[in-house]
């Protein structure tokens, strides 16, 4: 549920984001990938980080976005999805048997 305080804060932010060198959260969203890839330089990086400094919602969002990436990586590289403990012998035999038949 959206509180009255949040609505007021968003209205203030909305006005603030129209100032020079400020961007909206929607514009900030478009630069997240480039920022995390280290592709933002100079003025673009400055503007991105300035928004990050003044917008708590985007700070929280980016933190959760990065945590989610970390959980994803840890899940897919350290589980049964990672290297199997044993290589299925029937698969090895099937590969060897089929050799040269394609």
């Amino acid at each position: 549920m959206i509180t009255r305080r949040k609505k007021v804060m968003r209205r203030i932010h909305g006005a603030m984001f129209k100032l020079p060198l400020m961007i909206t959260c929607e514009a900030f969203e478009d630069f997240i990938l480039a920022y995390l890839d280290g592709e933002l330089k100079g003025k673009q990086k400055f503007i991105f980080e300035m928004h990050l400094g003044v917008c708590r919602e985007c700070r929280d969002y980016l933190r959760a976005y990065k945590s989610s990436m970390e959980l994803t990586k840890a899940t897919l590289t350290n589980s049964e999805n990672a290297l199997p403990e044993t290589v299925p012998e029937d698969l090895v035999q099937a590969v060897l048997a089929a050799r040269g038949q394609v």
């Binding site: 909305g14 006005a15 909206t24 959260c25 929607e26 900030f28 919602e57 985007c58 929280d60 969002y61």
Partner: peptide, 14 residues
């Protein structure tokens, strides 16, 4: 992500 008419992020508190 969802944004309001001013382009402000609508995000629950963390």
């Amino acid at each position: 992500p969802v944004f309001d008419a001013n382009g402000c992020r609508i995000e629950d508190d963390w």
